[in-house]
């Protein structure tokens, strides 16, 4: 499995869980893919370095949790895609023209409600 897909799969597990997960728990959840334990550990470490998951120590094990919920991160991403002022170097071209603030709020609200 390509590394990108693996990262996405691990994030899906973390987002789907009620609380922080250890490497072993994540490994068990996606075990069907014949993955080495150390691979999962590496992926979680990379995700922590990228600042998308938090890591905290619980006894001898590390526990991992997403920094934001899936909905929060999606809403933030949409804001970033739509935000377009020349003072902020925006350069994400999009199909529609600029959305109004109301439409933007609706986008965020819609992103929050889902999932």
């Amino acid at each position: 499995m390509p590394l990108g897909d693996l990262e996405r799969e691990v994030m899906t597990q973390l987002w789907g869980s009620a609380g922080p997960l250890s490497v072993r728990q994540v490994h068990e959840a996606i075990r069907g893919r014949d993955l080495a334990y150390t691979t999962v550990m590496t992926v979680l470490d990379r995700l922590a370095k990228k600042g998308v998951v938090n890591r905290e120590r619980d006894g001898r094990a590390w526990l991992y949790a997403p920094v934001q919920t899936r909905e929060q991160m999606t809403a933030g991403l949409m804001m970033d895609a739509l935000e377009d002022t020349p003072d902020q170097d925006a350069a994400l071209a999009h199909f529609v023209g600029r959305l109004s603030p109301e439409a933007l709020a609706a986008a965020i609200e819609a992103a929050r409600r889902q999932g």
Binding site: E71, T74, M78, L82, A93, H94, F95, A110
Partner: peptide, 9 residues
């Protein structure tokens, strides 16, 4: 992406 707002970029 998840989300009901129709968007493409």
């Amino acid at each position: 992406l998840d989300g009901a707002q129709p968007l493409a970029y």
